[in-house]
């Protein structure tokens, strides 16, 4: 009997091969964050010094951690698309009739999404440094762990949701419908400190907001902060909840 770990590995390998064979996706995954840097980053230079921009930090010190959150979120969002394709081709059904662990069936695609977050994230972190990004090494490592958890939340959710919806149209409208408000209300692009009070209050209902705050702390090397603690608590709890729920969906899905 193969173990849970080896099952997860084989299922992850299948998904990584799938990504590797889709060069278009690789190009998009790498170019999206770089485009944010190249085409949005320069706009920030003129407002450095506004509230929310700590003195001595460059625009990219604020902006790059936010871009990483966008990348982490986006890496998991698309998970449902392949689930629906694999419901149609019967792949998921076939895998569900093997004795493989249901959690392993879920983790294969979810961990693939973590890889498709981590790789572009590292590329962006390196590529941004000549342009004024000064990340702390340890902080960046912890940051990648936090945002990997965020990718797990989003990916597991997208996986399970598409198992239940079974329809690419409904999935697409829910996913894109959520993506924009969650992103805008997290302070990803600009710090919410420069916004009105109601936005800052509303943002507290958005898990991404905590991730963005912690990401900025971590990139600057402030690891043991309240913001980081809250972010790990929020995202960690969400990860546990979505994984439990999604595994249950994989167990009993009327697919």
């Amino acid at each position: 009997m193969s173990t849970f770990a080896s099952q997860t590995w084989w299922l992850l390998q299948r998904k990584l091969l799938e990504s590797w064979r889709a060069p278009a996706w690789i190009v998009v995954a790498l170019s999206t964050p770089l485009l944010y840097l190249a085409l949005f980053g320069p706009l920030l230079n003129s407002i450095v010094g506004a509230p929310g921009f700590p003195p001595g930090s460059s625009a990219l010190d604020i902006f790059v951690p936010g871009v990483l959150v966008i990348v982490a979120f986006g890496a998991g969002m698309g998970a449902g698309w392949t689930v629906i394709t694999e419901l149609d081709t019967g792949v998921l059904e076939r895998l569900r009739v093997t004795p493989a662990s249901r959690l392993a069936l879920l983790l294969g695609p979810v961990l693939r999404d973590v890889v498709t977050f981590v790789v572009p994230a590292i590329v962006v972190t390196i590529a941004a440094q000549p342009f004024g990004y000064h990340p702390d090494a340890t902080g960046t490592a912890v940051l990648l762990v936090l945002l990997s958890l965020l990718t797990i939340v989003v990916s597991a959710w997208s996986n399970a949701l598409s198992m239940l919806l079974k329809d690419i149209g409904s999935l697409a409208s829910i996913v894109t419908g959520l993506q924009l408000p969650l992103t805008l209300l997290s302070g990803v692009l600009l710090p919410l400190e420069i916004g009105p009070t109601w936005m800052r209050v509303l943002a507290h209902a958005n898990p991404l907001y905590y991730a963005v705050n912690a990401a900025r702390d971590l990139a600057q090397g402030s690891i043991l902060t309240t913001d980081t603690g809250i972010a790990f608590a929020v995202v960690g709890a969400l990860a546990a909840m979505t994984l439990t729920w999604a595994t249950r969906v994989y167990r009993s899905a009327v697919a």
Binding site: E18, E86, D88, T89, G90, V91
Partner: peptide, 12 residues
Amino acid sequence: YVGQAGGADLGA
């Protein structure tokens, strides 16, 4: 089990 849809991973 071989379902109606078949179940082969077509990209692999």
